[in-house]
């Protein structure tokens, strides 16, 4: 609605308003699946398998394009040839956007740490909110990451000086 971006809510919005906005955001995460390697299959298992069933967490994994997505899961090895495409699709996502880096390869290069063609971590290209370790991480680990991300979203302030910067798409400092 642009309330946050325009600063209508002011410096300190009412707590219930913040809570409500964040609550509705965290349970309607549209997730763009960037399946790259082995981790993509575990991500697929987390999404499609009845054993894990990610949709019960309010994650909708079928955006038609990155322009409809709030969250992207980079699952797998990022190569130097792939990196420009990842950056470009990340830039197409609307703010506020979140990134989960799934698996060792996306975190740091993993078993290909010395390869000539693998990017040593997706955080060299785009900012990452949550890292999932593992090679590949189990689907449960991805579910846990989603829950962590939801917690983080719930606790985000949306006052002018807090999150509005993120909503306006200003770069995030990755700790």
């Amino acid at each position: 609605m642009g309330l946050v971006e325009k600063g209508v809510l002011g410096r300190k919005p009412l707590k219930p308003v913040t809570w409500l906005l964040n609550y509705s955001r965290k349970y309607s995460l549209w997730m763009f699946q960037w399946g790259l390697a082995c981790c993509a299959i575990e991500m697929g298992a987390a999404l499609a398998s009845p054993r894990f069933d990610m949709m019960r967490l309010g994650v909708i994994p079928f955006p038609a394009s990155p322009r409809q997505a709030d969250l992207v899961v980079i699952s797998g090895t990022v190569t130097d040839k792939m990196a420009p495409a990842i950056k470009r699709l990340y830039e197409q996502m609307p703010d506020p956007k979140y990134v989960i880096s799934m698996g060792s390869c996306a975190n740091c290069g993993g078993p290909y740490w010395d390869s000539y063609s693998v990017t040593k971590g997706v955080d060299q290209i785009i900012p990452v909110d949550i890292y999932i370790p593992g090679c590949p991480p189990r689907p449960e680990a991805l579910l846990d990451a989603i829950v962590m991300l939801q917690e983080r979203i719930q606790n985000e302030g949306i006052g002018n000086d807090e999150l509005a910067s993120r909503w306006r798409g200003e770069p995030v400092e990755v700790a």
Binding site: G109, W113, D114, S115, Y116, S117, K120
Partner: peptide
Amino acid sequence: HPLRKDFPLLAR
């Protein structure tokens, strides 16, 4: 040409 033996893996 990566598979030539004189192509170094810089990361190493």
